[in-house]
């Protein structure tokens, strides 16, 4: 599978997929998409990169261990729920606010929660795929 063309295009393909996954994640609240789908797309990107160029470049590119990413995502999701406690509403109730950076942008705990979902899915599934690929090339 490690053909020259594949090896050359894989990094670009992977980066495009990661970008696309973030786009899918962020638009998820209003159009089809969201953390789960985005996470799966990004994980596929890393898996493809790993198949094409080996596991260590992927690990270097990720910088953090995939499991750590996954754990951080879970933390983000859980903490986004905690914020609602300060408002005196139940755990995980969505809180919205609007900030103006040139154009008005809605930010909310719900987006943070979805980002957490994204990170968990990316981290876990990338770690699975990389672990299996590593055995393959060992």
């Amino acid at each position: 599978m490690r053909t020259l063309i594949f090896r050359t295009t894989a990094p670009y393909l992977a980066s495009l997929m990661v970008l696309f996954s973030i786009f899918v994640l962020l638009r998820g609240h209003n159009e089809p998409g969201g953390g789960f789908i985005g996470g799966l797309i990004a994980a596929s990107a890393f898996a493809i990169y790993g198949i094409a160029c080996g596991v260590s470049p992927v690990r270097r590119a990720l910088y953090f261990h995939p499991t750590a990413i996954s754990g951080f995502g879970l933390l983000v999701s859980a903490c986004s729920g905690l914020l609602s406690l300060f408002e005196g509403v139940p755990f995980l109730t969505g809180i919205w606010t609007e900030i103006n950076v040139g154009v008005p942008v809605d930010i909310s705990t719900v987006i943070a929660f979805d980002i957490g979902v994204y990170l968990v899915v990316v981290g876990s599934i990338t770690s699975i795929a990389l672990a299996l690929e590593e055995r393959e090339h060992a």
Partner: peptide, 14 residues
């Protein structure tokens, strides 16, 4: 209530 147009995603995350 939840400011989202994709109902499936709103159910999941909110």
């Amino acid at each position: 209530i939840a400011h989202g147009r994709n109902i499936v995603n709103v159910i999941i995350v909110d």
